[in-house]
Design a protein around this nucleic acid. Structure first.
Length: 503
RNA sequence: GACUUCGUAGCUCAGCUGGUAGAGCAGCUGACUCUUAAUCAGCGGGUCGAGUGUUCGAGCCACUCCGAGGUCACCA
């Protein structure tokens, strides 16, 4: 239980005790009535001064400039920062000056949460401020906050830059970096924008199991767990695709889910073990329709967030204005390698990989080899939103065969900034074909492919009752948020990215 | 998993060819009733990520471990 406390932490604990001795609860239970926010004052005071004569506001003390018998302090609430002017004779009009001299000046610290009442005015130097007439402590901070200051040139000093600090103690990062609070607000706006698109078309937001007996719908290594009462193994879902399609069988025209998925694989700048995917399935549609829908959806996200279809991502400007470029996978490969692979068999593909210097091992089938070529030679080139269409059948076991092109399926992926953002199919609804495809997966698994899919017989049973022609699409919400907020790491769009436990 | 960089006060950082740690901000004491990186005077604060070794002597050199970032590989 023993804790090594720093000098500053010990002092703050002592201050807490002194407050209690004075009859002041450092953590009072009663609510504090708020009637205004910092942003409201800053934006509206100048043109409506009469409305700010009797305000009540609460927040965290971020800095104090002590002038003796008066102080300037900066208060931060959820909307921003506002300066306080605290004069001793105003908060202590009587003989007893202890509220100012002792409680405020001695016992309060940066980071404490306080409530103040007063009126708004503009200082001689032109800063909109709150002249405080009443001040109370709402919560005492026992740890010192990193003090980030910004000088007259707008350069910030002592900013916390250690990524470990930022990710492990996100709460501190959020307190001292308003732009980070804003980034996560944008992430929520993205989700809201998508929801608006789906709801406006009448599609139904649903929830499907996270604990699944068969981890289906994608090729990935799952987390495993165990249910004690049932005494069965369960898996954390790697996708929700097969459950959403069951709901289409059940008669809904459109269903979607924002799903946390889990994959027990490596971590890097674009992969976290748990991540968010939105999947949507719409009956009586095909993948061509879904491309149009995806364009509409993403253009709206960009407009809702930035008021513009153009989004700055690192050095690049990405334009989400409809329509996006569309190119088949074979054409993409021809464009970037000069090689036409459309008629090649597995051996010819293997030779082509060797010629291009692409690693190809024996477990790879024809589809996997084509995917390797695309991934190595093409993918990174598609910065502007581009639909890559018509994938090889072997690597798309849940996707319908192409209506006219032999050996291909009706699938597209949307590439943005050189990476996959969306993945969509004309969904396979032929139960016999689906059973065959699952059996192909079993063969791949026997050949050594660790990510081959499991057979889900209940899903096949559902298809046997009949699923309308359906198109489905999945989009990585974390990656979308990375693009839309212009950050390079998935950790920057997750409040609490996965970390090794602290020692 | 491989390679690589990093870990020093609450925060940001310095610390020479190895000689037992320093600054700014924050903190503490004091001055100042319109300041804004407020200012001025003074004072305290460290298991140098952990451990082992080399050395008369290690923040610094070597090795092991822990944590983080980056690159690559693997994977969607």
């Amino acid at each position: 239980m023993s804790q090594d406390l720093s000098e500053q932490e010990i002092i703050r604990r002592q201050k807490c005790e002194e407050l209690r001795n004075m009859g002041i609860d450092p953590y009072p239970a009663a609510l504090f009535e708020i009637n205004v926010f910092a942003r409201d004052i800053r934006e509206n005071y100048e043109r409506d001064k009469t409305s700010y004569k009797n305000i009540s506001i609460a927040g965290r003390i971020m800095s104090v400039r002590d002038m003796g018998k008066a102080c300037f302090a900066v208060l931060q609430d959820s909307t921003g920062r506002i300066q306080l002017y605290i004069r001793r004779d105003d908060i202590c009009p009587d003989e007893d000056k202890s509220l100012y001299d002792i409680v405020f000046k001695k016992l309060m610290d940066l980071g404490d949460i306080i409530g103040v009442k007063g009126y708004v005015f503009t200082t001689k130097t032109g800063e909109i401020s709150i002249h405080v007439t009443n001040l109370s402590l709402l919560s005492k901070a026992l740890r010192p906050l990193p003090v980030v200051t910004t000088d007259s040139e707008g350069v910030s000093h002592n900013d916390v830059t250690d990524p470990e600090f930022i990710y492990r103690q996100r709460y501190v990062n959020l307190i001292i970096n308003p732009e980070v609070r804003e980034r996560f607000r944008k992430r929520t706006q993205i989700v809201q924008s998508l929801r608006e698109t789906f709801n406006s078309k009448g599609y139904l937001e649903v929830e499907t199991p996270i604990l699944q007996p068969i981890p289906g719908g994608a090729a990935a290594r799952p987390f495993t767990t165990h249910h004690n009462a049932l005494d069965v193994p369960l898996y954390l879902r790697i996708a929700n695709e097969l459950y959403l399609k069951r709901l289409i069988v059940g008669g809904y025209d459109g269903v979607y889910e924002f799903a946390k998925d889990f994959r027990n694989e490596g971590m890097d700048r674009t992969h976290n073990p748990e991540f968010t995917v939105m999947e949507i399935y719409v009956a009586y549609k095909d993948y061509n329709w879904m491309m149009d829908f995806t364009e509409e959806m993403l253009e709206k996200v960009a407009l809702d967030l930035h008021g513009d279809t153009k989004v700055q991502v690192g050095e690049k400007t990405i334009d989400f204005q409809r329509p996006f470029k569309r190119i088949t996978m074979y054409d993409a490969i021809q464009e970037h390698t000069g090689i036409d692979i459309s008629a090649m068999d597995e051996n010819q593909l293997r030779d082509t990989c060797a010629k291009l210097g692409i690693h190809a091992d024996k477990s790879m089938g024809k589809g996997k080899l084509i995917d390797e070529i695309f991934g190595e030679k093409c993918e990174g080139n598609y910065i502007q939103p581009t639909f890559i269409t018509d994938y090889p059948l072997e690597m798309s076991p849940l996707c319908k065969k192409h209506r006219s092109k032999e050996g291909l399926v009706e699938r597209f992926e949307l590439m943005v900034n050189g990476k996959e953002l969306c993945n969509a199919y004309s969904e396979l609804n032929d139960p016999v074909d689906q059973r065959n495809r699952f059996e192909e997966q079993v063969k791949l698994m026997e050949r050594g492919d660790k990510e081959a899919m499991y057979i889900d017989t209940d899903f096949l049973r559902a298809l046997e009752y009949g699923m309308p022609p359906t198109s489905g699409m999945g989009i990585g919400i974390d990656r979308l948020a990375m693009i839309m907020t212009n950050v390079p790491s998935i950790q920057d769009v997750l409040f609490f990215p996965q970390m090794r436990p602290e020692a």
